[in-house]
Amino acid sequence: MGYKAQFHPGTSDPSKNRKKYMDPAYKLQKIRSVSDEDVVRVLGHRQPGEDYKSVHPPLEEMGEPECPIRELVEPTPGAKAGDRIRYVQFTDSVYFAPISPYQRSWMYSYRYRGMDSGTLSGRHVVEARERDVEAIAKELIESETFDAARTGIRGRTVHGHALRLDENGIMFDAMQRYVFDKSTGEVKYVKDMVGEPVPAPISVGKPLSENELKTRTTIYRADGITIKQDAEVLQMVQNVHWERSFGGFEPFKEAKF
């Protein structure tokens, strides 16, 4: 009998979306296309077409010591070439963003190798070798986990995930990295991740509608689907809370919820 991972409890929409994103067998839906060059420009770590800077020679030239683990684990393309470590950081609005930082961490852990992710309340940073970062960033920006209005690519001055949206429904950004083009209805990046201007605006497409976002989100909210509507999720949260609070204190006693 094969064991099939559930990834996340529950049957509600946010729960289903969480399961989807965390399941590495599920291919993220591609809803927009951004060229490789534009991804490099938004990240701002190097100029498009510029060589990758390296911190060590390619692994093949280095003559690695004999090691069963090294034989077992295939290095990522970036590690093979000796790239620098670079990062990409996303901010997710609390207003029904398609994904939130904590789920990003779960999702990345199931999907990507050779990366280090950091979760904060409103943003999520992932560090990896430069060409791996570019591949990860491209996949994420093009996929359904990115919304033009509720997700931001921000290296610094990330503040704004919990602020009210602006009149066009765009998440607040103090550096105004992206602007809403009223004539086309698209969101365009006019600055890179750290706020340096880019040569030409980079379009990331139209924001999704409120209803569409509510079906795609992984966030439980009082004005959407609350966590109380999903008994299994609530049970898990209470379990975790109990385990954390008591941490094995008097284990002979049954947990009371």
Binding site: H159, L163, D166, F172, A174, M175
Partner: peptide, 15 residues
């Protein structure tokens, strides 16, 4: 409201 810097001009949004 919170301030924003667009094109080096001081600007703000109103909450």
């Amino acid at each position: 409201g919170p301030s924003v810097n667009s094109n080096e001009n001081e600007n703000y949004m109103v909450g």
